[in-house]
Amino acid sequence: MVTTAGTLALLHTSPVHVPVFDGLRDRHHPGLVLRHLVDEELLVRARDAGPEAVGEAVAAALAAAVADGADAVLCTCSTIGGVAERQAGALGVPVLRVDRPMAAEAARHRRIVVVAALRSTLEPTVALIAEESGPDTSIVTTVVVEEAWERFEAGDREGYLDAVARAVDGAPGDDAGVVVLAQASMADAVGRMTTRRLVLASPRPGLAAAAAAVAAARAVTSGR
């Protein structure tokens, strides 16, 4: 357990992420202050017009978080994570996407199955894995859990997680390789699965990377 002083702002596109990250903070990063920014409209617009369409809105939200004292920012939405990450230079603080550490782990494997509840999440997730794998290109198969997002939007969390678990258990391929859960909201489905494949979810490694970024930023500031 690592105690981390400092403040991390989290940009969410659903309020369901707030208790998840609070719980992870309490277990693994006591002392880290989390400030949650929830804007569901960002994902709606990104699905309709593409992630770049929300670039200005994301930049404004992150700038406000930094002005409010955030030492770093973590975007928990895979669809707009790349848009958020590119704001780091302008903001002067670390800006992380929650799925990068997960993608880096996945890229170590030759065969990868990416499971998503939203088609808009597939392209940025697959692109991120390709970026992390470099010349050692992995074989990536994608699966969209068509009925899952409707359950999520209806507030049927149990049905959503069950649908994700069934999709992972029925995903093509054998026990080799790894399964990537493209959205942070899928993480709690892991305990409902029977697959023998390694299943990767983004919240815990994503928060750990962000906590490390906060600690590094605080160390630089205190050393001035």
Rank of each mutant, 00 (worst) to 15 (best):
residue 198 L to T: 14
residue 71 D to R: 01
residue 54 V to P: 05
residue 204 R to V: 13
residue 208 A to C: 02
residue 215 A to L: 02
residue 176 A to L: 04
residue 44 V to F: 12
residue 36 H to D: 01
residue 157 R to K: 07
residue 217 A to D: 13
residue 14 S to C: 10
residue 62 L to A: 08
residue 77 C to K: 13
residue 94 P to W: 08
residue 12 H to P: 06
residue 103 A to H: 03
residue 129 I to E: 00
residue 160 Y to W: 05
residue 193 M to D: 09
residue 162 D to Q: 09
residue 23 G to F: 04
residue 185 S to P: 10
residue 29 H to D: 01
residue 193 M to F: 10
residue 116 A to M: 14
residue 7 T to P: 03
residue 154 A to H: 04
residue 144 V to P: 07
residue 221 T to R: 13
residue 212 A to H: 11
residue 61 A to F: 03
residue 135 P to Y: 06
residue 205 P to S: 08
residue 151 R to T: 03
residue 57 A to E: 14
residue 116 A to T: 12
residue 36 H to K: 00
residue 71 D to G: 03
residue 120 S to P: 02
residue 15 P to A: 11
residue 102 M to G: 03
residue 89 G to T: 03
residue 74 L to R: 05
residue 14 S to N: 15
residue 74 L to Q: 05
residue 101 P to M: 04
residue 30 P to S: 13
residue 103 A to Q: 05
residue 34 L to T: 11
residue 55 G to R: 09
residue 138 S to C: 07
residue 86 R to I: 00
residue 91 L to W: 00
residue 84 A to N: 07
residue 82 G to W: 09
residue 174 D to F: 00
residue 195 T to V: 10
residue 79 T to N: 12
residue 209 A to L: 05
residue 82 G to E: 10
residue 172 P to H: 02
residue 10 L to G: 01
residue 131 E to Q: 05
residue 1 M to H: 11
residue 66 V to L: 04
residue 126 V to D: 00
residue 164 V to G: 14
residue 15 P to Q: 00
residue 106 A to D: 02
residue 19 P to W: 06
residue 38 V to H: 00
residue 119 R to A: 15
residue 121 T to G: 05
residue 129 I to S: 01
residue 73 V to C: 06
residue 75 C to H: 11
residue 102 M to P: 03
residue 163 A to N: 07
residue 23 G to M: 02
residue 125 T to P: 00
residue 35 R to P: 01
residue 73 V to T: 02
residue 211 A to V: 09
residue 128 L to D: 02
residue 11 L to S: 03
residue 3 T to C: 06
residue 154 A to K: 03
residue 99 D to M: 09
residue 135 P to T: 10
